[in-house]
């Protein structure tokens, strides 16, 4: 357990040792605020619905940029060899890295608190829905992070990791999208939307914390982290 914390501390700290984190964080904040407030006054409604509709797409670009380096860099610099010969379990390293990225996501959401604060100052939004949406965002983001890390663990090229993650997540989102659902037989449609990363988020964002949605995200996270650990183990298969 202590090792997980040590790894997490180092990884989280490492984000701030390179300019990439600052660049993406600023970009994320500017983009969320701009896109939200652009439509906010036109809609004339004190709600964050627009914001949470955008969120899966913004995180789609933001989080893979955060996770792309997690393993790719360790592979490229060969620090992985040292890391995996220290007396720590592979699963502890994976967990530590996951929680570091998760903390970074939480920080990004916290810093974009300008949006809910503005909405609350101007009008009288439904706070229950807002809180539920934020919880949903953490679950959705957690799933993105886990997938991003798993993809990163298969390559030593950060760009490949980034693009691979975006494509994979995009498929995960589009599975349940109206445009896709319309083209498949009605018997398959519920299965696809049941697998969709976005559909479960939307259902949480409506203000209903359904255990099915939460179990879905926990499964995605668990599965991706499992693949991640296996990919580290794969050095032993050759």
């Amino acid at each position: 357990m202590k090792s997980i914390l040590t790894i997490m501390k180092r990884e989280f700290h490492a984000y701030f040792l390179s300019p990439i984190a600052y660049i993406f964080l600023s970009l994320y904040l500017v983009l969320t605020n701009f896109l939200f407030f652009q439509g906010f006054f036109i809609a004339g409604e004190a709600s964050m619905r627009n914001y949470f509709e955008l969120l899966p797409w913004l995180l789609l670009l933001f989080l893979p940029a955060i996770t792309m380096r997690s393993w790719a860099e360790e592979r490229k610099n060969r620090t992985l060899e040292l890391l995996l010969t220290w007396p720590i379990k592979d699963s502890e390293v994976v967990s530590g890295k996951f929680f570091a990225s998760f903390l970074f996501l939480a920080l990004a959401l916290l810093l974009s608190g300008t949006v809910p604060i503005s909405v609350m100052l101007i009008g009288n939004p439904d706070e229950g829905i807002m809180i539920a949406s934020y919880i949903g965002a953490l679950f959705l983001g957690g799933a993105y992070i886990a997938v991003g890390m798993a993809v990163s663990s298969f390559t030593e090229n950060q760009i490949v990791a980034f693009i691979g993650t975006v494509v994979l997540l995009l498929v995960g989102i589009l599975l349940g999208h109206e445009g896709v659902i319309a083209f498949v037989p009605s018997s398959v449609a519920p299965i696809l939307s049941g697998l969709s990363l976005e559909a479960h988020f939307n259902s949480i964002a409506r203000g209903v914390l359904d255990s099915r949605d939460i179990i879905y995200y926990l499964s995605v996270i668990g599965l991706a982290l499992f693949f991640n650990t296996q990919s580290l183990e794969s050095r032993k298969w050759e």
């Binding site: 180092r10 490492a14 040792l17 390179s18 610099n77 060969r78 620090t79 992985l80 060899e81 040292l82 010969t85």
Partner: peptide, 9 residues
């Protein structure tokens, strides 16, 4: 290990 991999940051 060979080539001394360290965390440069």
């Amino acid at each position: 290990p060979e080539s001394t991999p360290l965390y440069n940051d």
